[in-house]
Design a protein around this nucleic acid. Structure first.
Length: 282
DNA sequence: CTGAGATCCTGGGGGC
DNA sequence: TGCCCCCAGGATCTCA
């Protein structure tokens, strides 16, 4: 599932491959995912030059020369695939991703961006660039987990406010810290050696400090590995990431903890699975 | 403010 | 082998 590291991987690759190109055409077969409407979207993007690509939490923002931006959320199974004349026949484009291409951008120079999404939860919206921050789903975000604004002070103030909640729930809430999803909340808590259902109020100062460092450490490391392809994440080349080989606990229920060999367990926190080692994490 | 549950989708896994 | 059911998951919305 695309979380911060996966989205950052896509954004970095798009920056390299499509900035400077002009959008020549747009096609879609799933209008529900296109806002404000297919016609409005087309008007904003066709003919515009791609000026830059950036990330806000798990959102991808493609800034266009004409004063508009395209905001994209990949949700669980969205993929952006960049195909050009050289790689169009690559084996990496095998199913299943090609089967679920619902939108396609034709760019200058024969390049295409194909948007595949098996579950059809992903969406994109064309808005004036000045209004990106005012988009409801962007405005609702807390501080990005890898931005300098996410610091110990912010984290401490947040935990002071959320003392009654479970730490696993706080990490997942995008309104507090943007970018952490189900994979990296479990991984960060494992690295910090803290149980996911600990009430925030029970965390000692050294545990808070450890968790803050663990969040940044895990996310940065996952970005370096081009994300986790536990399920179906693929980068813009159709290639899986590499961080799944370095997961400590996520998706490993019943398997031995890499640190101590104890069986990894799973519980529900905030309606979602949280994985942990009952021995390493306190 | 908080948490629970439903919703949006569809492939895949488990059970029979 | 085949069918049915349920689950996964990000985010939003409604309801208690």
């Amino acid at each position: 599932m695309p979380e911060l590291p996966e989205v950052q991987t896509v954004v970095s690759q798009l920056e390299r491959k499509v900035v400077g190109r002009t959008i020549r055409g747009f096609w879609t077969e799933w209008a529900k995912a296109v806002r404000p409407s297919v016609a409005g979207f087309e008007r904003a993007v066709v003919g515009a030059r791609i000026a830059g690509v950036r990330r806000i939490g798990k959102h991808i923002v493609i800034d266009l020369g004409g004063g508009h931006s395209v905001v994209i959320h990949l949700k669980m199974t969205g993929h952006l695939l960049v195909k050009d004349r050289e790689n169009a026949k690559s084996e990496a484009w095998d199913d299943p991703y090609n089967r679920f291409i619902h939108h396609r951008f034709a760019l200058s120079g024969g390049t295409r961006i194909e948007f595949s999404d098996m579950r059809k939860f992903a969406w994109m919206e064309a808005v004036p660039t000045d209004d990106v921050e005012r988009l409801k789903s962007v405005r609702a975000l807390g501080v990005d987990a890898l931005s300098p604004r996410f610091d110990r002070k912010y984290f401490n103030a947040l935990l002071d406010r959320k003392s009654g909640q479970k730490i696993g729930a706080v990490l997942l809430d995008q309104a507090h810290i943007a970018g952490i999803g189900n994979i990296y909340r479990s991984e960060a808590l494992f690295v910090a050696a803290i149980l996911p259902d600990r009430p925030v109020a029970t965390l000692a100062m050294d545990e808070r400090a450890r968790l803050f460092r663990a969040v940044r450490f895990v996310l940065r490391r996952a970005v370096r590995y081009r994300g986790t392809s536990d399920g179906d994440f693929r980068d813009t080349d159709g290639l899986p990431g590499g961080f799944q080989r370095h997961l400590g606990v996520y998706g490993r229920e019943g398997k031995p903890c890499p640190a101590c060999g104890t069986m990894i367990r799973r519980i529900k926190i905030g309606q979602r699975s949280a994985f942990f080692c009952p021995r390493c994490q306190k």
